[in-house]
Simulated scan of single mutants.
Amino acid sequence: MKTTIRHLFAAGCAAALVGAGPVAAAEQLTFAVGFPSGSTVVQSLETFVEKAKEYGGPEIKLFPLSLLDLKQTGPGLRDHIVDMGYVIMPYHPAEYANSNLGADLNMLATVGERIEAPGFAMTGALTEYIMLDCPECVAEFARQQQIYLGGISTHDYALLCTTPIREVADLQGKKMRVAADNWGRWAEAMGATRVSISANETYEALSQGVVDCTVVHAADLLDLQLMDVTKYITLGVPGGLFAGVGAANINIDTWRGLSAEARAALLKAAAYNSADLSNNYYLRPMEALEQARANGIEIIEAGPELTEATEAFVAEDTAVIAELFTDNYGVENAGEKVATIRALVEKWKGLTRDVRDVETLAQIYEEEIFSKIDPATYGME
Rank of each mutant, 00 (worst) to 15 (best):
K2A: 13
K2H: 12
T4N: 14
I5V: 13
A10T: 08
A10N: 06
A10G: 09
A11H: 11
G19A: 14
P22D: 00
A25E: 12
A26P: 02
L29T: 03
G34V: 01
P36H: 15
S37K: 15
S39N: 04
S39P: 05
V41E: 08
E46T: 06
P58Y: 02
P58R: 06
L62W: 02
P64M: 00
S66T: 12
L68P: 00
L68G: 02
Q72C: 10
Q72D: 14
L77E: 08
V82Y: 07
P93K: 05
G102M: 01
L105G: 02
M107E: 10
L108Y: 03
R114I: 08
P118T: 05
P118Q: 02
G119S: 04
G124R: 00
I130C: 05
E136T: 06
R143F: 08
G150T: 02
G151T: 06
H155P: 11
H155V: 07
T162I: 13
D170Q: 01
L171I: 11
Q172A: 09
K175D: 05
V178Q: 00
A180W: 15
N182E: 13
N182S: 12
W186E: 00
T193M: 14
A199H: 15
T202C: 08
A205Q: 06
L206E: 03
L206H: 06
G209K: 01
V210I: 13
V211S: 03
V211F: 02
D212Q: 00
T214A: 10
L222C: 00
T234K: 03
G236Y: 08
P238L: 02
L241N: 07
V245M: 13
V245T: 13
A247K: 01
A248C: 07
T254Q: 07
R256A: 09
G257S: 03
L258W: 05
L258D: 07
A260S: 10
A264M: 07
A269T: 03
A270H: 07
A275T: 01
L283K: 11
L289E: 05
E290G: 10
A294S: 08
N295C: 12
E298Q: 09
I300S: 04
P304C: 01
T307R: 14
E311M: 10
E311S: 13
E311V: 11
E323W: 10
L324K: 15
D327W: 14
N328P: 15
N333P: 00
N333A: 15
E336H: 00
V338M: 07
R342W: 12
R342V: 08
A343Y: 00
E346L: 05
K349Y: 01
G350Y: 08
T352A: 05
D354Q: 04
V355M: 02
R356W: 04
V358I: 12
E359H: 11
T360F: 05
Y365T: 01
S371G: 01
S371H: 08
K372E: 10
I373Q: 03
Y378S: 05
M380N: 11
E381D: 14
